[in-house]
């Protein structure tokens, strides 16, 4: 595992997210329990883009939800910028996998709401929301309701909705999962573009290894569930700025992909056997 330029830079910074020995266990309806994640430890430096990859149902999203403070870990600690996390993680923004926009609000209102809840006057919040819509390429779509937008446009609104609050940590749960291949690529580039402006710490969950390498500074691999663990951690030495399509032609990209896939493949097969898929 070689250190790329961005990786070395990230090392010198403060730690944004620190998960230490996190266990997450759910109580099931039939009085049993299900351990989703076991003994997960992970550090994300400020300004570092970390992709978390694992087979379907391995507890990647669960780990993200715990980092967001949506529920506490059953065991272990979560520290955000050195402080133990209790309750909601106020320093993070969360881009969800499924539809999370407020269907009864227009695109503009959806983006502005995160400022309005924080007490920003409505006119100012709306003006800044309009700015953000323009930045994600939807300047003329402010008055549209979510159902009038395409899947990709809704994701752009979602991205603006999260980023307008300027969170220090960005949590993303397969945000581009439901989109078609071309739109994913465009969204990936848009994300890198916005991210490079002020380099937030990012935890990006995906099951797509190519997407993970193309976007991130580090790729973390989780084993198949139940009791998923973190089983691999690779630095991505590819230079920035990157184009998510062009970077896939880089020989270094191929070497890394082959390397990581050897580890991931076994887990994916295990995952299929357990879920009966495949």
């Amino acid at each position: 595992m070689s250190n790329g330029a961005s990786g070395a830079e990230a090392h010198s910074r403060t730690t944004a997210v620190a998960l230490s020995d996190v266990n997450i266990t759910f109580r099931l309806a039939d009085s049993g329990s299900y351990t989703a994640v076991e003994g997960a430890s992970l550090e994300v430096a400020d300004g570092e883009f970390v992709a978390i990859v694992g087979p379907t149902g391995c507890g990647k999203s669960t780990l993200l939800n715990v980092t967001a403070g949506l529920f506490p870990p059953s065991q272990g600690r979560v520290d955000i910028f050195g402080a133990n996390l209790a309750g909601l993680n106020r320093q993070s923004g969360y881009l969800f996998q499924s539809e999370a926009l407020f269907p009864w609000k227009t695109a503009l209102e959806n983006v502005a709401i995160g400022l309005e809840t924080a007490g920003t006057p409505q006119s100012e919040a709306r003006a800044r929301a309009q700015d953000w819509l323009t930045r994600v390429g939807l300047g003329h779509f402010g008055p549209r309701y979510p159902h009038m937008l395409s899947g990709g446009q809704r994701k752009r609104v979602g991205l603006a909705q999260v980023l307008i609050r300027d969170p220090k940590i960005l949590l993303m749960d397969e945000p581009f999962g439901p989109l078609d291949a071309q739109t994913r690529q465009i969204m990936g580039n848009l994300l890198l573009d916005l991210w490079s402006a002020d380099r937030k710490a990012v935890m990006f969950v995906t099951h797509d290894l190519e997407e993970a390498i193309a976007l991130s500074d580090r790729v973390v691999i989780m084993s198949a569930g139940p009791a998923a663990r973190i089983i691999g951690d690779w630095r991505v030495p590819l230079t920035r700025p990157r184009d998510t399509a062009e970077v896939k032609l880089d020989p270094e990209f191929h070497r890394l992909h082959r390397d990581i896939w050897q580890t991931l493949k076994a887990e994916v097969m295990k995952g299929y056997e357990q879920t009966g898929g495949g």
Partner: peptide, 13 residues
Amino acid sequence: SPTVLANARMLGM
């Protein structure tokens, strides 16, 4: 929707 609700909380409501 639980996602909309979680989103609302993450947006600081």
